[in-house]
Design a protein around this nucleic acid. Structure first.
Lengths: 319, 319
DNA sequence: TCATCAATCGAGCAAATGATCGTACGGAAG
DNA sequence: CTTCCGTACGATCATTTGCTCGATTGATGA
């Protein structure tokens, strides 16, 4: 056992004494024969290494009720609703990420090989960041959207690399922009053998965790220059309210046919009919986009927050 | 939803924000619109109601190694070793109780009807106290030792009542002292229809969680006046080192035949051959008694602490 | 309607925790 | 063997949490 493993062992013991035994850091220090700040560091290490699993074993009724309503109305396999965070976009993504990590964790813990696909987005990334490490080299992870921005840099919200690092599986990335410059460029990309091979892996995946994009000036598609200002206006003019994997949707959840749609390089949404397609998205501002995705019937699972869930539920026809 | 349920809901939300979201109590107070001490009270309520489940997802190597050694040497289905507590008997029982509650919880969570039997003892009681509530009215819980002390009061360490309250199952208590005043009294008790009915339920149980008693002046049998001082000396003279369900054992784990043994009203240990019989006991002083029970082959599972485990392992023949 | 009692609240204080900074130690390289 | 760099430690300080006590509010009974 090397030094780091000894450290982890001691951190586990300190964590056990603190969280289970209810001892103070001073008490633990006395028993382990280290200083009080040393115990503090051991506990911090235990938290950082993801050893401490906290589960709140009591449903929050309002979140549960919202989730049940959305499951029933849209025929979802599940809908997890986390408490709303009112402190900024990062912490909202973190809450969603923790809940999503629990779902992803349950899928990847099995031994039979699994092919899992990921979209992009801040919440999808947060989910992978919140996921604990494990060793399942038999699994495969594949990107559903291109991981290259228009300037050639990697997509900042792509998480397949990190997921494969954590779980040890094979990784399949799309070296392409989500929206091509032209129809010719898109066709050239789709014709590439690498592209077709990755598309086949994606089609074979059992589950997909994806974000939901909004269509406004803060949309990633616009901010990362995949579409121009005039194209944004075109989408808004066609009443686009959101996007899934780059495909723009109107409020009924229909993919809008326009010049942008023809240049999207992602696998068409129709291919995901048999997948467990799970969206990870929340926030008041995202509610219209999430609602559209639900109405379009593209989703089998949803991980959202209270703010978005409430806003969607408020707009459902009453029965 | 009544006021207490609203309170529990709010406590769950505060707990989620604190333990999962990592927010401070001031931050939670701002979001929930209550005072900071109010949040502190909500978190205290959440802890008191057992909503917060903490699991340390990393083994402590020394505990694990001791457990594996004892499993292999004595052919146990499992051996859980918790870190030693050095702060007094109550906290040692608490550590053992938490680990045992996890095992009991896994058994009772199933839906198929289960019959579970319990011995008595401080650690058995601590296990039931640490167990979370659930609703399984189809289960049955039965006492393995009489729940009546010599003066007619209820056994202070009997936990079947509490267990049945928490899980909602049927309860079968033995209205008898663990050691009768005389052989005639014992025979009269065993002849009672109620007694025989409860004994049949106990025989039908799949698992039994029992304590291990010591034989010295601090033994419960002596302190609660089931045996006299001269009888204690008799047991010590016969080299009794421990007891299971009132049955005294020598260091080889054999039940000692003597005047006390003939008056014990519990089900004889031979009846438990096919049960998952799990002892919950720890502490340096209990090590000889636990070791005797192991050598006698009476146990299929053990939940102990590091101090006891190390002392037993140190006495095993080396190979 | 008023008085009393119980429950809950928040201010404030003590205890516990989280983090920073200066120092020391160990290992590696020259 | 010496020097330098990186890591870890403990003292100390700032922040957070746990708890107590006095005050307030609400409910119940006369």
């Amino acid at each position: 056992m090397d030094k780091f493993e000894l450290k982890l062992d001691q951190a586990a013991r300190a964590a056990w004494m603190s969280y289970v035994g209810g001892l103070t850091q001073d008490e633990i220090a006395a028993q382990l024969g280290v200083s009080r700040p040393g115990v503090q560091r051991l506990l911090a290490l235990a938290r950082q290494e993801g050893m401490i699993k906290v589960h709140i074993d009591h449903p929050i009724s309002t979140c549960m009720a919202l989730g049940r309503t959305l499951e029933e109305h849209f025929g979802l396999a599940f809908c997890d609703v986390v408490p709303a965070a009112s402190q900024g976009v990062e912490s909202a993504a973190y809450y969603l990420g923790v809940a999503a990590a629990e779902r992803i964790g349950r899928l990847v813990e099995r031994n039979a090989p699994l092919t899992l696909s990921l979209g992009s987005g801040r919440s999808v990334r947060a989910a992978v960041e919140a996921l604990d490490r494990t060793e399942r080299p038999q699994h495969r992870f594949v990107s559903l959207v291109g991981n290259v921005a228009r300037d050639g840099s990697a997509n900042r919200y792509d998480a397949v690399m990190l997921l494969a690092d954590k779980i040890g599986g094979q990784r399949f990335l799309l070296p392409a922009p989500v929206v091509a410059e032209s129809l010719a460029e898109k066709n050239a990309l789709l014709d590439q053998r690498l592209f077709r091979a990755i598309a086949e892996v994606a089609k074979a995946s059992e589950a997909a965790f994806i974000g939901v994009g909004r269509i406004d000036r803060r949309a990633t598609l616009f901010q990362d220059h995949f579409i121009s200002e005039s194209e944004l206006e075109e989408l808004l003019g066609l009443e686009a309210v959101g996007e899934l994997l780059g495909w723009p949707l109107n409020s009924r959840g229909e993919v809008i046919d326009c010049s942008i749609t023809r240049r999207v390089t992602s696998l068409p949404l129709e291919h995901f009919g048999k997948h467990l397609t799970v969206a990870i998205a929340g926030g008041n501002d995202k509610a219209p986009a999430i609602h559209a995705a639900l109405r379009g019937g593209w989703l089998k699972g949803l991980i959202t927050d209270e703010a978005a869930a409430r806003r969607i539920v408020d707009q459902l026809p009453t029965t």
